[in-house]
Design a protein around this nucleic acid. Sequence first.
DNA 1: GTTATTACAGACTCGTTATATCTATAATTA
DNA 2: TAATTATAGATATAACGAGTCTGTAATAAC
Lengths: 140, 140
Amino acid sequence: MQFSKSTDYALHALAYLAHLNSSEPTGIKQLADVLNVSETYLSKIMTNLRKDGLVNAVPGAKGGYELAREASRISFLDVILALEGRQHLFECSNTTSKQHNMLVQETPASECRIKRVMDSAETQFYEYLSNQSIQSVISQ
Amino acid sequence: MQFSKSTDYALHALAYLAHLNSSEPTGIKQLADVLNVSETYLSKIMTNLRKDGLVNAVPGAKGGYELAREASRISFLDVILALEGRQHLFECSNTTSKQHNMLVQETPASECRIKRVMDSAETQFYEYLSNQSIQSVISQ
DNA sequence: GTTATTACAGACTCGTTATATCTATAATTA
DNA sequence: TAATTATAGATATAACGAGTCTGTAATAAC
């Protein structure tokens, strides 16, 4: 289990935009050069960030990308959810197996106890990441 | 990013062994039947658990698997590391990019600030999972 | 010892996903 | 109108997850 490269690039791209702190949008060319990835690949990643409202995309000449809000209000979790999706980190595969249903019956909420533990861990994980902002990795 | 099915099966298998609490090893046949997966596939998963010292494998007739230690001393993290491996959840891909090195230079430890945040999140995550034992999902 | 039972290792298949590129199109500014 | 830029779609490739098959080694029961 590992975070995708896309998430890595997205975090670095946003950190760069926050670092620049420019009043004008930054083109994909410049971004791709600084991150050392291809323009078309990075543009797909930026589109994901736009769809989740983390950046604004300005088309046309002099266009590019800009943070949709202050870097201090964009969390690591925001970025991860935009790139990795919102499915849970853990799911029980065989929800019809004898073993699974034994564990289900032992909890009041009729949910497998193993999944409950894993979901709690995920919540803690995400809680931490939601408190880490892109601004925090930029020099003051 | 998601945990593999193998991790799911491993957790359920260990929970079952803890539940049985048998003095004799449990064969792969019975285990596979309860979990509703194929014997050969599950045996690969059990071998991973054995290599990490979580279960003992007894070959030969009347053989099978048994917990290597009390279920209260086998943590969720133990199982996850055995199945998912020990690589970090996050790595910076382009360690030679201008952007990455900018972030590296801003931290005393000469490490990218983004990676520092992700590693901290991972530590919190694993810390939580190391405190959850297989015994905790079994009815008292 | 022989046989049955069991775990184990390795090769292999199949499908999905991540990664990445290319091209055409739409939108905006100069 | 021309130049620049983001976007969508199709495609290619490699890696990985998931799962099967087969033969081998180890052990207990007879």
